[in-house]
Write a protein that binds this DNA or RNA. Structure first.
Lengths: 316, 316
DNA sequence: TTGTAGGCGTTATCAC
DNA sequence: GTGATAACGCCTACAA
């Protein structure tokens, strides 16, 4: 205890927690700080948390740390949290449905004042402030992209290019954002008076996407334009096209979603829907922050935009 | 307090912390559990941490959450930690040197029993158990890949293909692992009686790597084979080659490092050094775990291997 | 087998 | 402006 070093007692608390407003004299404060410095002393967070009932920590639960989309989201959330003097604890649920529930419990183990659920459906059990990311359960604050618009624009892009056989390479993960995409693909295709041309699903791994794409493009009446739920999935199309001797975009056009960094490096560069992942993370923390402050924040929907690159062109 | 629900007091502690060995009767235990369930009661971790002095949490500090290599590392560490009933707290230092020191403090704020530093040089200040990942400061346990061997093999591969002008696209980040690579590139090139042919550095972003690669390949006596510190950097070579009308591997051969998922999707697929990132994370936790148990673990060096794909061939 | 009591390091309230 | 003192919720002897 630094209390021995100085002479005081709970004065230390005032000083070290920055509440020495007009309550501690300058000399005393200096003494305390010096002693703390010398002893390498710092406040015990567990004790503070116990006493105050607040941990200044928020948790983030994510389906898959491994997905390139996630990094920027965490960074954005973490940056926002830091600004508000909060830390972020992360738990990766590793796409394991069984672990989702367990994870929440485990997360609670590291006491947090609130939670952000990224893509994973948040548990019903309330009490704590919770915000959903890329999911919008009824009655729960959320932050997500305008997936509807993104999907519409992507599919319309294909249609306006003249494609009449439009396929869909979708995510295997059963999450709201992907259900929305499926619906909208179907809707836009129907609105153009067309029939959907193939639908396959894959996990977010290039090898799985590769196989699914092979099924999609291997069909006799293969699509000439493919909408993919994600750039990673779109990579599967590139792989399959290479196998099948199909050229992009001359034989097949591809549109992705997310604008992941590698999209530009593909040959040809991938046409995709650009989103701001960091902003998503930051927005999630902001909403959570409002929630923790006792407010009742609205859900937030972030804009997206089509980036046309070289992977789309007129049908053969 | 669940104590009111049941009838007992500290018995609850025994039951809920799984120490009811032969000390609590079955009926009592059942009562306690039922009450806890009903009240949605769970142990308060802050109190436990305060009392026991141990948080069952370890921290991981990373330079860049955004780098695709990091995800699997965290997953591996987290999986290992979970098995040992530990949680992992993550802090992203966002490539910000100023923030590194501050981060450690911030991390300490969320009390952890030990720390893993990924690529970032760990602070001197000891006391806590600390393991370094991909760095091996003197006297500190570490876990890293056999970068020396990986670099040697990659460069030798180029040499054995007949290349005599070998360039190096290196990381901008000043970390041990990249210093090693630079040294070994120079050494192998010299050992083959050759002169190094260009050295550029870039941040881990495709656009930055792109520019650096343009400088490297734009030179009059440009290299015919390029060793890249990382697959992401290698992506820059693809971009620059496209700009300059250079074919891979006919005009330039490229070797990467890490075998990131997208390496296979590049056209042509990237020859690279494969590593097991999850294993790195798991090993890091294991070492940390030993350290926390009071042992004095050795550093661990994980093997790597060359994967030859389509981006390397004989020089023009 | 179960209950009682003390203390982990903070913060907050209240005297001085 | 500063120092006692109690309480946050848990674990752990020790006593019953």
């Amino acid at each position: 205890m630094a209390r021995r070093a100085g002479v005081s007692q709970s004065t230390v608390s005032l000083v070290l927690s920055g509440k020495s407003a007009g309550r501690v004299s300058a000399p005393t404060e200096a003494v305390v700080r010096a002693a703390a410095e010398e002893l390498g002393y710092r406040l015990n967070v567990a004790a503070r948390t116990l006493r105050t009932g607040t941990a200044r920590t928020v948790g983030m639960v994510v389906t898959d740390v491994t997905h390139p989309f996630f990094g920027p989201v965490l960074r954005g959330a973490q940056a926002a949290a830091w600004r508000a003097d909060y830390a972020v604890t992360l738990v990766d649920v590793a796409n394991d449905p069984d672990r989702e529930a367990a994870s929440f419990e485990a997360l609670r183990a590291g006491p947090a004042d609130g939670y952000m659920f990224f893509t994973v459906d948040p548990p019903e059990r309330s009490g704590e402030p919770v915000v959903a990311i890329e999911v919008s359960p009824p009655g729960m604050p959320f932050v997500r992209f305008d997936t509807e618009h993104g999907t519409d624009v992507a599919v319309d892009h294909l249609i306006s290019l003249g494609h009449t056989r439009i396929g869909h390479l979708g995510a295997l993960l059963d999450a709201e954002t992907f259900r929305i995409r499926r619906e909208h693909v179907l809707a836009r295709v129907a609105a153009a008076g067309l029939e959907p041309s193939g639908y396959e699903q894959a996990a977010f791994r290039f090898d799985d996407a590769h196989e699914a794409a092979l099924r999609l493009l291997g069909a006799a009446d293969r699509p000439t334009g493919v909408y993919c739920d994600d750039d990673l999935l779109a990579g599967g199309i590139y792989l399959a096209a290479r196998d099948l001797g199909l050229r992009i975009p001359e034989d097949v056009s591809v549109v992705g979603f997310d604008d992941l960094p590698f999209a530009k490096v593909f040959t040809p560069p991938l046409t995709t829907i650009a989103i701001d992942a960091e902003e998503l993370g930051a927005a999630a923390f902001d909403v959570l922050s409002a929630l923790m402050a006792g407010e009742e924040p609205e859900g937030r929907i972030l804009p997206v935009s089509l980036v046309v690159r070289g992977s789309t062109g007129p049908p053969p």
